[in-house]
């Protein structure tokens, strides 16, 4: 397809970036306290869980699939990690070890839903939509049984300390502290910079992005999404690859759940229920195609930021948050229409 005019194409391809900038400017002028360091930090802090879910979704969508289970796998992980931390704590383990073991065991358990998804999709050829919807129901039911329908609480307070700490604490005139808030700074102004969970999330996303962009695994992921037959003929073990993709997706969702547990010091079966579709929306706003083969982590994160800036910006302005749904619906449609009009980003034959 011939390239359309330079400038409009440029706008068309960069519209997500542009849109985010417009949002930032808009809310900076209108929002109550949006244009402050704290305001930005709140947005980033709020984005962590969704960003990880959307990262999970990106891998799956690039293969041409979809993972509806990420939201409830996240809830499942928050519940399991919270319950385990409580259990280890009651066994008399030190809080550090309780949390560490809880996190490690949860990460291991979190591979399971993804494995089931992957086997259903890759081996039994169940459409991803249905396989992951079924697994979503199963994980949700399991979380509810574990928690008996209420939230999992009484997590050691250390979780709070980790989950709500900041990377840097700056006390003007006295120095910088990392991770721990200085005790002695009573009465003095402590400036908290960058929530630790944001740092963790950024690191995880960086690894994910590297994986998708720079490794053979990533190349194969695009190849499968572009043309699975061609990938198969090129000698890629597509079945195994797809299983790994769904396991990976589940793993990122689990991480998201663990971070939720640390941030909110509790686990909830439906912690991620509203994120289930938001994660797909973020990926699509980022320019990925549900037909597969297109999409990058970086663009997905752009999509996540568009959503969270919108939500938090509206919240800080005092606008009713349900307007977010209308806005998201419109942005979503807009995103897809733009892709229709600037198709050169999507490399699909005919």
């Amino acid at each position: 397809m011939a390239r359309a005019g330079g400038f409009t194409t440029l706008i068309g391809q960069r519209w997500a970036m542009l849109f985010l900038l417009i949002e930032l400017v808009f809310f900076s002028f209108l929002g109550g306290g949006f244009f402050t360091m704290n305001g930005f930090q709140i947005v980033l802090f709020y984005s962590t869980t969704l960003a990880l879910l959307a990262t999970a979704e990106t891998f799956v969508i690039v293969t041409g699939g979809i993972d509806l289970s990420v939201g409830f796998v996240m809830g499942f992980a928050s519940v399991v990690s919270a319950k385990l931390a409580v259990r280890f704590d009651s066994l008399g383990l030190a809080p550090e070890l309780s949390i560490l073991f809880a996190v490690l065991v949860t990460l291991a358990i979190g591979l399971l839903p993804g494995f089931v998804n992957g086997v259903l999709v890759a081996r039994l050829k169940v459409p991803p939509f249905l396989a992951t919807f079924a697994v979503q129901g199963i994980t949700y039911g399991t979380s509810l049984i574990i928690t008996q329908g209420s939230a999992a609480i009484n997590v050691p307070n250390l979780a709070n300390v980790i989950g709500n700490s900041y990377f840097i604490h700056l006390v003007p005139g006295r120095g910088i502290w990392f991770f721990t808030r200085p005790e002695a700074a009573r009465g003095a102004d402590v400036i908290d910079i960058i929530p630790t969970m944001v740092v963790v999330t950024v690191l995880v996303i960086a690894v994910a992005s590297f994986l998708l962009k720079r490794t053979r695994f990533g190349r194969h992921t695009y190849a499968i999404g572009g043309n699975i037959d061609a990938a198969l003929r090129a000698g890629i073990n597509t079945r195994r690859h797809l299983v790994v993709i769904y396991v990976l997706s589940s793993l990122f969702a689990t991480l998201s759940g663990i971070i939720y547990m640390l941030e909110y010091v509790s686990g909830k079966a439906d912690a991620g229920s509203s994120f289930m579709l938001d994660s797909v929306v973020a990926v699509v706003i980022g320019g990925a195609s549900l037909f597969g083969g297109v999409g990058t982590i970086w663009r997905t994160i752009l999509g996540v930021l568009i959503l969270s800036v919108l939500e938090m910006g509206l919240k800080m302005m005092g606008v009713q948050t349900f307007d977010k749904y209308i806005a998201v619906g419109i942005i979503l449609i807009f995103a897809v229409l733009i892709d229709q009009f600037f198709p050169e980003m999507i490399h699909k034959e005919d």
């Binding site: 979809i66 209308i326 806005a327 619906g329 229409l337």
Partner: peptide, 17 residues
């Protein structure tokens, strides 16, 4: 030619709001 999944997800958002 918007994929049905996306189009109806969009109208769903609008219906919710």
């Amino acid at each position: 030619k918007v994929p049905p999944f996306i189009a109806t997800l969009g109208t769903m958002g609008i219906a919710i709001g």
